[in-house]
Design a protein around this nucleic acid. Structure first.
Lengths: 132, 132, 132, 132
DNA sequence: GTGGTCTAGACCACC
DNA sequence: GTGGTCTAGACCACG
């Protein structure tokens, strides 16, 4: 899992970290039970403040994607095959998706363009998660 | 076009405004040429500062969705039927979509769940734009 | 002399008008003594307020490029062959040129690129003013 | 780098600031990687509001001349030796240059006068950038 | 300590 | 009337 972070982007670093972890879970690079590096290790790797890594991990924990133990460090606590989504998450996610889809539509992408992109992206996920 | 804004949310007000306008364009409630309220009128309507509205309009202008005219105020300058999307926008959008789709996947939505939601949302758009 | 004005641009209309007239004088399309349309005629032609045309003419008058008579209307009062430039204009112009040249340099145009562009533009001027 | 700003001029302060920074980049006083003062520091230096500095920095950022980092503030992100200009910039710049050159021509500067001034100004740029 | 956001109110430029 | 600019001060997010 090679992760890159752009400290000059408009996206906060802690969120970039969160996003990369989420993507790694989606692609199957990280699975339920996979351990993550310690906050300090990750921080020195990227040359960023370890508070920033902490914040990213905390975000993931609140989104039920990470379990954090003082002893064993951070461990992925769910992935695509851990069970169905929570209804309240689906509602929230649908709202955010609506905005994103609206933007694509307004800027000139057709319904089929959009669905094709989604399908293409989704095809890159779960390549390793075809275990029932 | 009924718009609501939550001043206490974690999303900046000016971005909420931008999002609502984008969605209105996607659904066809706003079309190319549609006038928008003046910045000060919108501001008093929502009980917010006109600078905040200004920033939202400026965002939309930079995304080529709005044209600002000193005399007549803000006018929608593109919609779903205004032509194909710019390639650089597509690239950027795909990146953002990837993160969103990854989140859904990690949280337990299946590929088909996700595509169904997208299709459903997209179906609410462009109901009025099927004129050639 | 075909003139176009973009009411939605970031450049004020009265300045666009001024710029177009200045360019017309530079290319020789307008010469010392050439009459300009009345403010009201121009205004209705472009669908703009005649005060706007007035302001453009007033600017040109203050820059010694136009003479305005209540009777005979606006007349071009100088062109490229009307004599040497005033020193204070040269100083002011040099300052503005410095900023423009600096921008080109900072953005990656080389000294030769810039001079080539200037030469090319200047070559389109005065095609009709080669009378000594 | 000594910068002066005239709060009573017809040119907006934020644009004067932008112009001075651009010129500093062109002369080589600022190079890619050079840090700029914090918005609030600059603001108090000039006795202006920090929002005004903010706007100037934002302009420079949108023109790819500045990179803004939450931690370390603003850093120059390109200079004359950072690579060739973008075509769309060249087109836009040529348009603005045309108007400026037309004004000089109309006011009595000859082609050679103008090119001499340009050469003189350009000679003051990049005195320190002839490395490689 | 950095920039970002929001508010409030003033004045000006444009049309 | 419209938007644009500037000021002033408060609070928050980021690292």
């Amino acid at each position: 899992m090679i992760i890159e972070v752009d400290p000059d982007g408009d996206v906060p670093i802690y969120q970039q970290l969160r996003d990369r972890v989420v993507e790694a879970i989606a692609t199957g690079a990280l699975k339920e039970g996979s351990p993550l590096p310690s906050t300090r290790a990750l921080a020195t790797d990227f040359g960023i403040n370890f508070h920033t890594v902490n914040k990213a991990y905390d975000l993931l924990r609140r989104q039920r994607l990470l379990r954090i133990n003082r002893k064993s460090g951070a461990v992925v606590s769910r992935d695509a095959s851990s069970g169905p989504a929570e209804p309240e998450f689906v509602a929230d996610w649908t709202g955010r998706a609506t905005t994103l889809l609206a933007e694509a539509t307004a800027r000139g992408l057709t319904r089929d363009d959009i669905l094709d992109i989604c399908r293409t992206v989704l095809a890159t996920f779960g390549e390793e998660s075809e275990e029932s």
